[in-house]
Simulated assay, not measured.
Amino acid sequence: MARVIAVVGNKGGSGKSTAAHLIAHGCGSLARQVPTVVVTTDPAETPRTDRRRYAVMDGRTRDGLLACMRRLLEVEYLLVVLDGAAARPEVDAVVADVADLALLPFKPSAQDAERAVTNLAQLPASAVALPMDWPALPASAKRVKRYLEMLPAERRLPPFKHIPKLADLLGDAYTDAAYDLANPARGLALEVLARAGIDPDDLVPPKHHGTAVS
């Protein structure tokens, strides 16, 4: 059975899609690639169709999402990353049923941190927050440290720092940015998998199995 990471949160612009695609890109950039699918659930977002180190599937409608998940969960060697849209009860229901880990991204602002505190309290105890696009410069990071401290240390991952070309991950410049993003994406993917209790080697299909998802 496939394993599932759900990227959730009811605030738009908090970095959910970026986090989902980063995790998938990281898995596809490992020395032993983990077959990964990002399921796009936001009706306002167009699923990517360009060639990537992971697959993207359309789950923007309730029926489409359920059909996607029924198919994907049957695949033995696969990581599914649910790119959860804001305020989508049907996505929340899937998350509650199948996710190995719910991941709640938030950015360095008072509004994002406050919303993350509220959302995290409503999620399973295993859910964790992910500080996204965090300042890399020490002085800037110090100024926003208070937003990190609003969430319990045991329920948040280390901040994912701002890096150049991050915005290209979701656009047409993916191919040009893929190499530069590979190393930080690998680090994030391994951090998330470890928190979910998933050994990436368990998701790597034996060579004779061929491609996990067409």
Rank of each mutant, 00 (worst) to 15 (best):
D168L: 04
L181E: 04
R48T: 12
V37W: 02
G64T: 05
P152W: 01
R71W: 13
V128N: 09
A2F: 14
D58H: 00
A194T: 13
H209K: 06
R32K: 15
L190T: 12
K207S: 02
M57N: 12
H162Q: 15
T46Q: 14
A24L: 10
P205R: 04
D92Y: 09
M150Y: 09
A20I: 02
P105L: 08
R143D: 13
L73H: 13
H25D: 02
L123V: 06
G84C: 04
K207F: 07
D176Q: 15
K107P: 00
H208C: 06
A99P: 08
G9L: 07
A55Q: 08
P131R: 07
V144K: 14
G64M: 04
V38T: 11
V8F: 07
V8D: 12
L123Y: 14
T118L: 15
V34N: 02
F106H: 05
A67L: 06
A185G: 01
I23H: 01
E149R: 15
P131I: 00
D58F: 02
V39M: 06
V192I: 14
Y147M: 05
A93H: 14
L190R: 04
A2W: 13
A85E: 07
H208N: 09
P200C: 00
R143F: 15
D63P: 12
W134T: 01
P159G: 00
D50I: 01
L148S: 04
C27L: 05
M132I: 01
V144G: 01
P124S: 01
L190Y: 09
A19L: 10
V144D: 03
T118F: 14
A125F: 15
A6P: 03
P159T: 09
T61W: 00
A212W: 11
S29Y: 07
A55V: 09
A102M: 12
K142T: 12
R195E: 00
G9M: 03
A127H: 03
H21C: 07
Y179P: 10
H162W: 15
L193S: 02
A110P: 10
L101A: 03
L103A: 00
Q111P: 10
A194D: 11
A177Y: 09
N183P: 11
L22I: 14
L101W: 09
L65N: 08
V39R: 10
T175G: 14
R155E: 12
A178F: 03
I5H: 07
K165E: 14
A110E: 14
W134Y: 08
V213W: 15
Q33K: 03
D100P: 01
G84P: 04
R156S: 02
M57W: 15
V56S: 10
L151I: 05
R53W: 08
I23A: 00
S109L: 02
S126P: 07
L169S: 03
G197H: 05
L101F: 05
S214M: 15
E149T: 14
V144H: 13
F160I: 09
K165P: 07
P205T: 04
A189P: 05
Y54S: 06
P135V: 06
A177Q: 03
R156C: 04
I5N: 03
A93E: 15
G26W: 01
I163N: 12
T40M: 00
V75G: 06
P159S: 01
V38E: 10
R88T: 06
D112R: 11
L193F: 09
A127E: 05
A141D: 11
C27E: 09
A19D: 07
P131H: 11
L78Q: 11
L73T: 09
